[in-house]
């Protein structure tokens, strides 16, 4: 269960989040929609612990633990996974090596047994197959020379392997064609369970046709200005974000 209470944050002197309050119970998927500049990406970075964002107030509790003081890796170990809007390229770092190192670091932090290379490969191949991805994905360097769609699929692959309790998808749908969109959605839907929850951040309603949210929140000018069921997304699609700040 993720509980965000009155969370405020800034970059330099610029206030971006101005008191966000939100709770995502286990097993639920919540969508966060909003106009450009509303603070959507900032929210995802603050939750995952990226440098350069100063939390000026409020808290974020995940499974009873305040995560804001944790390092990014400790948050990952706690089960939080951020699917990047722009996945980072790591020249010279093989995808398989990267994912095994990550998986074992998380396992170690949780006191679980680490996987050897063979066991990992078996696991990775199975995950690839499930996501209709080629095996050579593992041999390539992380995101280097990947198309936009491949990068997003690679994020989904990592998510499938790390089995997070909370996934934050930061505009994962941007720049994706319908086929890639479906793969991303299937990846998220496959993880759906009573112990998995997700925050799906998106500008458009399109992705929500495939990942049907339990709730939709509208973030505008750093605050949640409206919440509702899936029908809210359709309404926004039809009427746009204009006038929401006043709501």
């Amino acid at each position: 269960m993720l509980e965000i209470k009155n969370l405020s944050a800034r970059i330099g002197d610029k206030e971006i989040l101005r008191g966000v309050t939100l709770s995502v119970p286990d097993g639920e998927i919540h969508a966060i929609m909003g106009p450009n500049g509303a603070g959507k990406s900032t929210l995802s970075y603050v939750l995952s612990g990226r440098d350069g964002y100063e939390v000026t107030g409020g808290e974020a509790i995940y499974n009873g633990q305040d995560i804001l003081a944790l390092t990014p890796e400790a948050r990952a170990a706690a089960g939080i996974f951020l699917a990047f809007q722009y996945p980072v390229e790591l020249p010279g770092v093989g995808n398989a090596n990267f994912m095994r190192t990550a998986l074992n670091a998380v396992k170690r932090a949780r006191g679980e047994a680490e996987l050897d290379a063979v066991a990992f490969l078996k696991l990775a191949r199975a995950a690839l197959k499930k996501l209709s991805m080629q095996d050579d994905m593992l041999k390539r360097n992380v995101n280097v020379g990947f198309s936009g769609g491949e990068k997003k699929r690679n994020e989904v692959l990592q998510m499938a392997l790390l089995q997070p309790g909370l996934a934050i998808l930061d505009e994962t749908d941007s720049g994706l064609d319908i086929d890639a969109l479906k793969i991303v959605a299937e990846g998220v839907n496959a993880l759906r369970s009573e112990t998995f929850s997700a925050l799906v951040i998106t500008h458009y309603q399109r992705l929500l046709d495939y990942i049907v949210p339990d709730k939709v929140h509208v973030l505008a000018a750093g605050k949640i200005v409206r919440s509702g069921g899936p029908e809210l997304a359709l309404e926004l699609e039809a009427r746009g974000y204009a006038g929401l700040e006043a709501a």
Binding site: R50, T71, E73, V88, M99, T101, L162
Partner: peptide, 29 residues
């Protein structure tokens, strides 16, 4: 590149490991 360090850390890899992975990758290339 701090972007890269953060990406690795967000996947659960401790900072020291992340940094040495990136240096090794630089040399592997």
């Amino acid at each position: 590149d701090e972007e890269q360090v953060f990406y690795l850390r967000s996947r659960g890899i401790p900072e020291d490991t992340a940094r040495s992975m990136l240096i090794r990758a630089f040399l592997t290339e």
